[in-house]
Simulated assay, not measured.
Amino acid sequence: MDYKKITIFLNENLYQEVLSIVEYRNKRIIVDNEDKKATNVEEFVTGSVIQVLKWLKSEELSAGLDDLGKPYRLRNHFKEILKGKGWNQKMLAEKTNIDPGNISIILNNRSQASLDYFLRIWIALGCPPINECLSRVEKED
């Protein structure tokens, strides 16, 4: 991959805020014994830029979420998020204490989850941004 170097300038307050977030996250990795590597300010800023770009691109994905009353059908993207984590439906069912049959129905968008089930799944998946979890598609006749 070809990388381009850019220079950014942060005022002291913003730099200190970023630094404290990076230090906190690195301490959490150690305390929680997570399988993640520590990061530095440059990696954090790069990751933040990548996250904002993903968010901007996903706005198209969430089309219809603000068009209430229009003929859109709600779809969840839990199945894709689950695969991205390397989990299977059985693992999700165990983590959420939701019957595997219900997990299948929800992940395949045959029926939308109740608020309780939605929150259990959402929390189990690490609380991904809502616009990555849900989208609306035009109803098919």
Rank of each mutant, 00 (worst) to 15 (best):
G84T: 07
N88C: 06
F9E: 14
E138Y: 15
A113Y: 06
Q89T: 14
A124L: 03
D99W: 02
V45T: 05
L10N: 01
D116K: 13
Y117H: 04
V49E: 02
Y24E: 14
A93P: 07
Q112M: 02
D116F: 12
R75I: 14
E60M: 10
D32T: 11
I105M: 01
S58P: 08
H77F: 01
T7R: 04
G101F: 02
C133Y: 01
R73P: 01
G86Y: 09
P71L: 11
P129C: 02
T39G: 05
E138K: 15
K83P: 00
A93W: 11
A38Y: 10
L134W: 04
K5R: 14
E80N: 09
I130H: 01
A93M: 06
M91W: 01
T39R: 15
K95T: 06
I50M: 05
V45W: 05
L14D: 08
F9I: 15
L115R: 05
R25M: 13
A38P: 08
I105T: 12
A124Q: 00
E140P: 08
N40T: 09
L56N: 08
L53A: 14
K27S: 14
C133T: 04
K5C: 12
F9K: 15
K27I: 14
Q89R: 13
E132S: 06
T96V: 00
F44W: 14
Y72L: 13
C127E: 02
N108R: 11
T96K: 00
H77G: 02
G69I: 11
R120L: 03
E23V: 15
N109C: 01
N40Q: 05
R28P: 04
K79A: 07
L61V: 09
N13G: 07
S48A: 13
V52Q: 08
K95Y: 04
K27D: 07
E17D: 10
N102R: 12
R75G: 04
G64K: 02
I21A: 10
N102I: 13
R28C: 12
W87R: 12
F78Q: 07
K95C: 01
V22W: 10
E23T: 15
A38L: 08
S20V: 10
D116I: 15
I123S: 08
S48W: 14
K57A: 13
V22R: 09
L119Q: 03
E23R: 15
Q112S: 02
E12K: 12
I103Y: 03
A93S: 11
Q16I: 15
N11S: 06
P129D: 02
V45C: 05
R136A: 02
P71F: 10
I30V: 12
A63E: 04
L56E: 06
